[in-house]
Amino acid sequence: MDETLLIILLLFILGIFSWFGYTRMFIGMLAQFSMLVMAALVGNPDWLGDNVISIINRMWMLFSMMLNGGFQIIAGGDFGQLNEIYAVAELQPPLILPQNRDIVLFIFMLLLIVGSFFVANKIMKKSSRLLGVFFGLVNGLMVIFMLLPVLGGGQGILPTLEPQTPLEGILGIFQMATKLLLVPVAIMFEVLGSWAIVVIILAIVILAASTARGGKRSAAAKASSSSSGNS
C-alpha cells in the first residue's frame, strides 16, 4: 500500500480510538491499556509468548496424564506409578506444535485486543474525557504497532518491525507516534505553505485565550495580591 494512503488510514484509526476514548473516558481507557499491554507481551514469543505456550503445553500434558490413568493412581494412592504415566505423556506431541506457535500467539493477542474493548465498555466510569482521548490515542498506537507488521505493512512507518525487548517496543511506539502526529502538520504545510504557521499560531492563541474561565482580574494581579496577603 502507498505510504501516504497508509498514514491517512492509520490517522483515521487513531481518530476512531480517540473517539472511543472520549466516550469511554479515562478509567475505561486505562483498563483497555492494561489489556493491550498484556496482548503485546503475549503476542511476542520472546517476551511472554513462549512462556504462555509452555504453560499451555504443560497443562495439556497434565490433563492427558490425568485422563490416562492419573485419576485412578491418585485415588488408589499408588504415587509411584505417576512417573511411568509422566514418561508416556512426555513422549506425546504437545498441544501446540512449534510450527503453530506464531499463529496461536497471534490468536491470543487478537482475543486480548478484542477483549480489551469489552473491558473498556464494562469499566466505563465517569472520569476525565480529555485523558480518555489521550489514552485512546495511546491504545490506538499500540494496536497499530501490534497488528501492522502481522498484516504485512509498516515498512517506513514502524522503526523496527521486530522489537527485541519491550523497551524497544515502547521506543517504537513513541517513534511511530511522533511520525504520525507530525504528519498532519506536514500535510498542512504542503497545502497552505508557510501560512500553515499562521494557522497554528492563531489556533494556539485563540484556544488558550478562550479557555480562561471567569475572573475579572488578571492572573498576575491575583498572584501579586496573594503574595502580599501572605506577607
Partner: peptide, 15 residues
Amino acid sequence: LNTFAFRGVPQKGFA
C-alpha cells in the same frame, strides 16, 4: 511587566 497577562483562571488538570 505583567501588563499583558490575560485575565481569568486557567484550565486545570490535563487540559
